[in-house]
């Protein structure tokens, strides 16, 4: 099966006055056609930066330092800014930013804000109304909302508008960064169903979140991100049922559940400073299985549909699972 997205050795750093923050530090993975992916990790692990890098929307002092992003045979990082803006951004890949529903302009109607997106991308004026109504219907809202202002809508409705904004030019790939955080649980369920519907309509979704439970609703493949690196990548079955990396195991164990043992579990400690990440495995000081060899950078070991970066699996016998 052909790969629809390949990310190779992506590095995005923030060059601050006191040093470079290595937010995305050599990330590689690939997706097959029709596969949606979830990127999970704690706050400040670099997952939002990964999303922004794919959109080529990193603000200075952030900068993509290295890497290739191949979307259906085209390296979108190698393109000029002009070509990327014209052909790719928002038209082939779009993003729902974290907290976007709070960034809607309070003084403009929904219609005007959606129009602005279309105008910016050179969409013909006389077709705008039709496209706006289509986008709003696609997210399950009644077209009458377009005449309202953001404060008249509930949190869930605003989030749908922001998703409509991302879909309006019919991209094939949508990056959603924490789309359900800060929403009530019943509204979260509706947004998850909306994302499922979009998947059925042919969209590929990259879901960025710290909530490993909702990732299971959307993603065929999951990448676990820690301190700027992807430490494990694999199919959903693999990650939930046979997690390999100790960090993945700890994250899975920390998910609160409605049924089963009431044993509280969490990941002790804090992630390392990304300005001076330690040499060797970055999870070393929080890992229950840390060994001497972990002071060296762990190799990437291929496992079924993905890989794990951990010395525990270096033994060639183990890597044949």
């Amino acid at each position: 099966m052909k790969d629809s997205l390949i990310i190779e050795n992506l590095k995005s750093y923030y060059f601050t006055t006191v040093g470079a923050v290595k937010a995305v530090d050599n990330v590689s993975f690939s997706l097959k056609k029709g596969e949606s992916v979830g990127i999970a990790g704690e706050s400040a692990c670099g997952k939002s930066t990964l999303g922004l890098s794919i959109m080529r929307m990193l603000q200075p002092p952030g900068k993509i330092v290295n890497g290739k992003i191949i979307l259906h045979d085209t390296d979108i990082l190698a393109m000029s800014e002009h070509e990327f803006t014209k052909k790719v951004r928002w038209k082939r890949i779009a993003m729902v930013f974290q907290g976007a529903m709070n960034a809607l302009d309070p003084v403009y109607s929904i219609k005007d804000q959606l129009k602005e997106v279309l105008k910016y991308h050179g969409f013909p004026e006389n077709e705008m109304q039709e496209r706006i109504i289509e986008a709003v219907r696609q997210v399950g809202l009644d077209p009458s909302v377009i005449d309202r202002h953001p404060h008249e809508l509930s949190g869930g409705m605003k989030q749908r508008i922001v998703i409509a904004m991302a879909l309006i030019l019919r991209p094939e790939f949508v990056i959603a960064d924490e789309p359900t955080t800060a929403l009530d649980v019943l509204v979260q369920a509706q947004i998850i169903n909306l994302l499922k519907k979009l998947k059925k309509e042919g969209m590929t979704i990259m879901l960025i979140t710290h909530d490993l439970a909702i990732i299971s609703e959307i993603a065929e493949k999951i990448g676990i991100m820690y301190a700027g690196e992807i430490v494990e990548f694999g199919s959903a079955e693999q990650i939930y049922n046979e997690p390999k990396h100790p960090y993945t195991q700890a994250l899975i164990a920390a998910i609160p559940r409605l049924k089963g043992e009431k044993k509280i579990s969490y990941v002790k400690g804090t992630p390392p400073n990304l300005m001076n990440p330690p040499t060797g495995c970055r999870f070393y000081d929080r890992c229950p299985h840390a060994m001497d060899v972990c002071k060296q950078d762990p190799p990437s070991i291929k496992i079924k549909d993905g890989f794990v970066r951990c010395w525990l699996y270096e033994d060639s016998k183990k890597s044949q699972q």
Partner: peptide, 26 residues
């Protein structure tokens, strides 16, 4: 019941099911 249905458990089987939202939207 609706609140409990809305909760996601970490189950790869969720990919193939829709979330049950029995109640009408407000």
């Amino acid at each position: 019941q609706a609140l409990i249905d809305a909760i996601s458990e970490p189950d790869p089987g969720n990919l193939f099911k829709e979330k049950m939202v029995r109640i009408k939207t407000e």
